Deep mutational scan, measured.
Amino acid sequence: MTGIVKWFNADKGFGFITPDDGSKDVFVHFSAIQNDGYKSLDEGQKVSFTIESGAKGPAAGNVTSL
């Protein structure tokens, strides 16, 4: 699925993605970002991701920028 990064705190390594389908915002951890180098996201960035079952509920996985 796709969405827009609502916010991401690079110091803490997590944030939230707002899915394009209008569903509830999804937690994203830096370890789910699939790019080389520094793993961070920018507010407003368009991303593709999967929904994984995290310890505290749904979380984004396999996050790639579009």
Rank of each mutant, 00 (worst) to 15 (best):
K56S: 13
Y38E: 11
G22F: 06
N9I: 06
S40W: 13
F27D: 00
D36C: 14
V63F: 01
A59E: 14
K6P: 01
D20E: 08
G57N: 07
F16S: 03
I33L: 10
P58G: 05
D42Y: 15
N62P: 03
G13W: 02
P58E: 09
K6Y: 04
F8P: 01
E43N: 14
E52P: 03
Y38I: 12
I4D: 03
Q45Y: 05
V5G: 00
H29T: 04
G44S: 05
G22C: 08
F14I: 10
K56I: 11
Q34A: 13
N35W: 10
S48H: 14
V28D: 00
I51Q: 05
D11S: 14
T18Q: 11
W7A: 03
G22S: 06
V5H: 01
A32K: 08
D36G: 15
F16K: 04
H29P: 03
V28R: 00
T64A: 09
Q34M: 13
L66Y: 09
M1D: 04
S65W: 11
I17R: 00
A55E: 14
D21M: 05
G54L: 07
D21W: 07
T64I: 14
V5Q: 00
G61W: 11
G22W: 06
E52D: 09
E52W: 11
G44Y: 05
S40E: 07
F30C: 09
G44N: 07
T50M: 11
N9P: 02
T64D: 05
P19G: 03
T50Q: 09
G13P: 00
Y38T: 11
F27R: 03
A59T: 15
D36L: 11
A55N: 11
V28F: 12
A32M: 06
N62S: 11
K24W: 07
I51N: 04
G61P: 02
A55P: 15
G15T: 01
P19S: 04
S31E: 05
K39H: 09
N35A: 15
G13D: 01
F14T: 03
A60K: 01
D42H: 15
A32T: 07
F14P: 00
F49K: 00
D36A: 14
G15N: 00
D36W: 08
N62G: 08
K12T: 06
I17S: 00
V63G: 01
V5W: 02
G3P: 00
S23D: 08
T2E: 06
L41Y: 03
P19D: 02
K39W: 08
S53Y: 13
S31D: 04
K24R: 14
A10Q: 15
G15D: 00
S48Y: 12
D11G: 12
G22H: 08
S53Q: 14
D25S: 05
K6F: 04
G13E: 02
G13I: 02
L41D: 01
G22K: 07
T2L: 09
L66K: 06
V26I: 10
S23C: 07
Y38L: 12
D20W: 06
F8R: 00
A32I: 04
F30G: 05
D21L: 06
A55V: 12
S23A: 08
T18F: 06
D20K: 04
V26M: 05
F49D: 00
W7G: 02
W7E: 02
F30K: 12
K46A: 12
V47S: 00
L41N: 01
G54E: 11
S53A: 13
G57S: 07
G22E: 05
G37Y: 10
S48N: 09
K56R: 14
Q34L: 14
G15W: 01
P19A: 04
A60D: 01
F30N: 06
F14E: 03
Q34C: 13
E52T: 13
A10K: 14
F14C: 05
G15M: 02
F16I: 06
I17D: 00
K39V: 06
V63K: 01
G61N: 13
G54R: 06
F14Q: 03
G22I: 03
K46W: 12
S23Y: 06
G57E: 04
P58H: 10
T50G: 05
K24Q: 13
F8I: 03
V5T: 03
G61K: 15
G37S: 11
I17K: 00
S48T: 12
D25N: 07
H29S: 05
P58Q: 10
A59D: 04
E43W: 13
G61D: 07
G61L: 14
P19N: 04
F49T: 00
L41S: 01
S65F: 15
P19C: 07
D20R: 04
K56L: 10
F8H: 01
P19V: 05
F8M: 02
G37I: 10
K24L: 10
A32R: 05
V63I: 05
K39Y: 08
D25G: 04
